[in-house]
Computed example of a mutant assay.
Amino acid sequence: MTSILVLNGPNLNLLGTRQPEVYGTATLADVEQLARDTGAAHGVDVACFQSNSEGALIDAIHAARGVHAGLVINAGAYTHTSVAIMDAIASVELPTIEVHMSNIHAREEFRHKSFIAPVAVGQICGFGTDSYRLAMLALISYLKGQT
């Protein structure tokens, strides 16, 4: 069975209580369940991992090689700062969808730059928790060669 790894970065463990006016009231557990349900509906297994540590996220990306067919990643603030995460994604050569609940292009200027976008198949942002469902569907379609 095809497997996808959903990675969530710093502060996403606080979903549901952190800035609900920006991120809504869904929890990280809700987001992970949405990803699993979306995968299951399409015959895809989904593993989830969250860390506030850049190194742990890089280790998870490295460990995904040969185990998962692709990645969905919300690197949080590391999106805008981490060349190391970008290099890790490029190194494992797994198709990756970058995802954000808020529209990063409509927020502060520093959020407009993504180090992940150049090594991702695509980016989905601005649809709240539905961004994860859309990212899953996009990656599943990509893996099936439908894009």
Rank of each mutant, 00 (worst) to 15 (best):
R107A: 10
C125P: 00
L143Y: 10
H42A: 14
I89N: 01
V92S: 03
R18T: 15
A69H: 10
L5R: 07
H100M: 10
N13G: 11
I124W: 00
A135S: 15
P20E: 11
D45V: 12
K113T: 13
G16S: 09
V119R: 06
C125N: 03
E109W: 14
A138C: 14
N8M: 07
N52V: 11
I89W: 01
A75Q: 01
L5D: 02
I4C: 02
S82T: 09
P95N: 08
Q19Y: 14
A63D: 15
N103T: 13
S53G: 12
R65S: 13
V121S: 02
V121H: 06
L134E: 03
L71V: 09
L137V: 11
P20C: 13
L143E: 09
V83T: 10
R133D: 06
K113I: 13
A41I: 07
G43C: 06
E93M: 13
L134P: 04
L137P: 07
Q123I: 10
V44A: 02
H105C: 11
E109G: 09
V67W: 12
L134G: 01
H112T: 08
M86F: 06
R36S: 09
S91N: 14
G24H: 06
N13V: 07
Q19S: 15
A60S: 10
R18K: 14
G145H: 12
G43Q: 06
N8F: 01
V119L: 04
D30G: 08
M101F: 12
A60G: 03
L14H: 10
G9N: 06
E98L: 06
A135I: 06
G39L: 00
T96K: 09
R133G: 03
L15K: 02
G66F: 04
L134D: 02
G24S: 12
I89A: 03
V92K: 02
K113V: 14
I140F: 05
I73C: 05
M86G: 05
Q33L: 10
D59T: 08
N11E: 04
R107H: 13
N8S: 10
G55W: 07
H62A: 08
Q33S: 09
S131C: 08
V67G: 05
L34S: 04
T38W: 00
A77N: 05
F49Q: 07
I73K: 00
L143G: 07
A47M: 08
T17V: 15
D130V: 03
H42Y: 08
P95I: 09
C125F: 02
E32V: 08
I140V: 15
E21W: 06
A29F: 04
A56W: 02
R18M: 13
P118M: 12
A60R: 06
V31L: 15
N13A: 08
I73R: 00
S131T: 08
S141K: 11
V72G: 00
E109Y: 15
S53C: 13
G128H: 01
V44N: 00
N74P: 08
T2D: 12
Q19M: 15
S53I: 06
A84F: 07
A120K: 01
H100Q: 08
I97Q: 00
H42L: 07
G39A: 09
T38E: 09
F49W: 04
V119N: 01
I116H: 00
G70K: 05
L34T: 09
E98T: 05
Q19L: 14
A138V: 03
M86E: 10
A56D: 11
A35W: 00
R107L: 10
I116A: 02
